[in-house]
């Protein structure tokens, strides 16, 4: 692999890691507050559809982004109602949300655009355009650094940089603010938070709402930036890979970045090389596709350090009377 190819693969690593990272951080907030969320996939899908649809109709990608966030938030509210207010099973609620999004997106897309469950292709202001950094063209002749700057650092869309910025922001919010401390406490020991006079329900709804916003951005990125429009099932399991990355990262923001970059890198390799010839043997593309899941199972099995989820995760909180 020469330097130019490597840069291209790394470049697409960042683009493919972005939706994973946003969804992973979304799951991080929710699960740190004790609300398991396997509905990341559905929220991203709903957001992808509505953002593409609104971006097409209005011609503005920013309105599309807002619509995507709204769609994701709506599903978040359902998840919150089911798992916080009515103390239902959070996993079952997540499953329902995934199916709801999977069915409704195609149903509405068909009724709205009649193109077989997809939106028309987006172009121009309907998509996020890449940010060219200063001197990106001028610096190309400089060896090593020039192409690196031009190819890898410059020329992504705003959401890629936003996703990367969300990592330190999330770390700061979760580990350096009062809100973050309480949010983490509510995922470990909600009774203690309640005793301290802080609303468990309020905190958990806040976490689920943040999760909705981030999933919305992730979905909008898929439809308006990575691709040009919505197609059926376009999330293609990314919500579950994000969930895998979250476990891989053991529910910590910086590790979430590394896990998502790793899984994004695997996707980029699989996209670029199909069957990867390593000289001695060939790695089939199917193995590359399955690798994030296999790695997660290995991590979960506790062979490489133990992944311990937040203690109160998945359990509805019942206030003592």
């Amino acid at each position: 692999m020469d330097y130019a190819t490597l840069l291209q693969v790394l470049d697409s690593t960042f683009r493919l890691a972005t939706p994973l990272l946003l969804a992973c951080l979304a799951g991080l907030y929710s699960e740190r507050a004790g609300i398991f969320d396997i509905g990341l996939e559905g929220k991203m899908l709903a957001a992808a559809f509505l953002s593409a649809a609104v971006a097409f109709v209005t011609g503005s990608v920013w309105l599309g982004l807002l619509a995507g966030i709204a769609a994701s938030m709506l599903l978040s509210i359902i998840h919150g109602l089911a798992s916080i207010t009515f103390r239902g099973n959070q996993l079952i609620s997540g499953v329902a949300i995934n199916f709801l999004a999977s069915g409704l997106t195609v149903l509405v897309a068909q009724a709205w655009f009649a193109q077989g469950g997809r939106t028309p292709s987006l172009s121009g202001a309907g998509r996020f355009s890449p940010w060219e950094w200063p001197f990106a063209e001028a610096i190309i002749p400089v060896p090593v650094v020039g192409p690196l700057y031009n190819e890898l650092i410059s020329g992504h869309t705003a959401i890629v940089y936003l996703a990367l910025a969300m990592v330190p922001i999330s770390w700061y919010v979760l580990f350096r603010t009062r809100f973050g401390l309480r949010l983490r406490a509510v995922g470990e020991n909600p009774a203690a938070v309640d005793t301290a006079g802080v609303s468990v329900v309020g905190l958990r709804f806040a976490a689920v709402a943040i999760c909705g916003v981030l999933c919305g951005v992730a979905g909008a990125y898929l439809a308006t930036s990575l691709q040009a429009g919505f197609v059926k099932e376009m999330t293609a399991g990314r919500g579950y890979i994000a969930l895998a990355a979250l476990i891989f990262a053991k529910w910590r923001p910086w590790y979430a970045l590394y896990a998502c970059l790793l899984f994004g890198f695997l996707q980029a390799i699989a996209l670029r090389f199909q069957n990867l010839d390593l000289g001695l043997f060939t790695v089939p593309v199917e193995f590359m596709d399955a690798l994030p899941y296999i790695l997660t199972v290995v991590i979960l099995a506790g062979f490489v350090g133990k992944a311990i989820p937040p203690r109160a995760g998945g359990e509805p909180y019942v206030k003592e009377r």
Partner: peptide
Amino acid sequence: PTELIIVIQALVILFTGALDNM
């Protein structure tokens, strides 16, 4: 489209499973 069935399936899971207490 046949995806209507996925929506119905989702609603059944939602109401009989997650929103059972409601």
